[in-house]
Amino acid sequence: MNVFRLAGDLTHLLSLVVLLLKIVATKSCRGVSAKTQELYAIVFVTRYLDLLFSFVSLYNSVMKVVFLGSAFSIVYFMRYHKVVRHTYDRELDTFRSSFLVAGSMVLALLINSKYTFFEVLWTFSIYLEAVAILPQLVMLQRTGNIDNLTGNYVFLLGMYRGLYILNWIYRYSTERRYWQMIVWVSGIIQTALYADFFYYYLKCWNENRTLVIP
């Protein structure tokens, strides 16, 4: 565990707290993509299947359970909560997320480091996480004025990915046996997807005005 990894995980956790806070406190999920949230739920389920048969550390196990729980809570609020579900902008959330799932599955079957059931599902979760933010980014463009909490949620997610890249560089230069090409390539693509958002987020923040993605 190094400072970049810990900061990355805590930023990820904070992003989920911000999103849940927005939903619970404002009783609204305006501007939030249910498709992205459902993709994250799929990502966590397929990646953290190893909770059942491998143990890394108490930290890892607790975080996995927290991420799973928060992902399913968010999906529950957006789809089933009697007040919140009416604030979901269905007509703005039109990205065909099934293509992302199918594409990630095909890629995971073609490119993986071991052709076993759990390894393919794990690889699928890596590929799917890389693109899971796309429905949310497209929705932000369509939403117009983006509220602070939603903007901060996406910003924190992007920060988390950036910190993970620093973590990989650090680990590669300090650990003798560390290597994970599939994770690195997917992670760099994932982080690059945030570039546009970061540009407008920082620009609007700097000019002290409400976030709008043109």
């Binding site: 990820h12 890394v56 550390s57 890892n60 046996r177 560390y178």
Partner: peptide, 10 residues
């Protein structure tokens, strides 16, 4: 010793 994949990240 070669570098190997490790699944100790989240």
């Amino acid at each position: 010793e070669s570098r190997g994949e490790m699944k100790d990240e989240l």
